[in-house]
């Protein structure tokens, strides 16, 4: 039975695409057959974060308009043979596709994949409506900032109104040092305010920048964010893994491994 998950946030720049790339790759590492769909028509990015930008021939709009078959548009990942990307169109806009067409598109993929991940554009307009139309489950990404959380709250309201089956939260870019000195909202603060289930807490990690520079998702690697994303993937497939709060993890082991990394 396949599951269709939309990754959304409302606000731009909080890490939707990074999260999509890492969660998709992580699920593939766990042996699942995964397809990532970039639904941000006109502003395509997921291909770059995945390092697949040079392999694009056809895109999502081509599939919807019948210019090609689905198989022709799907790009196989460089590293994982069970991971695919359906890129977005760069020269069109959000109105090129309707929610009804998206529902059909993901339904056509259901039989062939375990997980279908939809990377949603920022905003609450048609691009968002398209992305959530066919989804069974939503993951809302936010950061511990007033503007991002306000938008997340609005998105959660819209998802509830659209009868989304399950809505879960990822709090991204948590800076333990700032939380500790009281200059950043903690994970508990964010959970308390948004009052939905949490599926991931991802620390701010400069390796994320490096990994997107290289076009290679870092999920599963030894870095703090890589581990946090792998935990998210395990929770998605139903494993019961307690949330690691980045702000209270500085035990002996953590500091030691940090020290070793630096040396």
């Amino acid at each position: 039975m396949s599951e269709i998950i939309v990754i959304t946030s409302g606000k731009g720049g909080v890490g939707k695409t990074t999260t999509s790339a890492n969660v998709g790759t992580g699920l593939a590492i766990l042996g699942k057959k995964v397809v990532l769909i970039d639904t941000d028509i006109g502003l395509r990015n997921l291909d770059v974060v995945m390092g697949l930008e040079n392999r694009i021939v056809y895109n999502l709009v081509d599939v919807v308009e019948g210019n090609c078959r689905m198989k022709q548009a799907l790009i196989k990942d460089k590293r994982y043979p069970n991971l695919f990307l359906l890129p977005s169109a760069q020269t069109r806009d959000k109105t090129a596709v309707t929610p009804g067409q998206m529902v059909k598109l993901v339904d056509d993929l259901r039989d062939d994949f375990d997980y279908i991940l939809l990377d949603c554009p920022a905003g609450i307009e048609q691009g968002f409506q398209n992305a959530i139309a066919g989804a069974d489950r939503a993951i809302v990404v936010t950061t511990p900032e007033v503007s991002a959380i306000r938008d997340a709250d609005r998105i959660i309201g819209l998802l509830e109104a659209a009868d989304m089956g399950s809505i879960e939260l990822i709090v991204n870019r948590i800076r333990a040092d700032m939380v500790k000195r009281g200059d950043m909202m903690s994970l508990d603060d964010v959970m308390d305010i948004l009052a939905i289930d949490i599926i991931g807490a991802v620390p701010d990690d400069e390796d994320i920048v490096i990994s997107s520079n290289q076009g290679e998702p870092l999920v599963g690697m030894g870095t703090p964010a890589g581990q946090a994303y792998m935990d998210v993937c395990r929770r998605i497939i139903g494993e019961n893994i307690p949330i690691q709060n980045p702000a209270v993890r500085e035990g002996l082991f953590f500091r030691l491994s940090h020290l070793l990394k630096r040396a």
């Binding site: 007033v146 959380i149 306000r150 709250d153 939380v179 009281g182 200059d183 950043m184 909202m185 305010i193």
Partner: peptide, 15 residues
């Protein structure tokens, strides 16, 4: 006041 607390209070009101 710590800015984290300020953020929390502003958010609560705002939402």
């Amino acid at each position: 006041k710590n800015s984290g607390e300020i953020a929390r209070n502003r958010l609560k009101l705002l939402l």
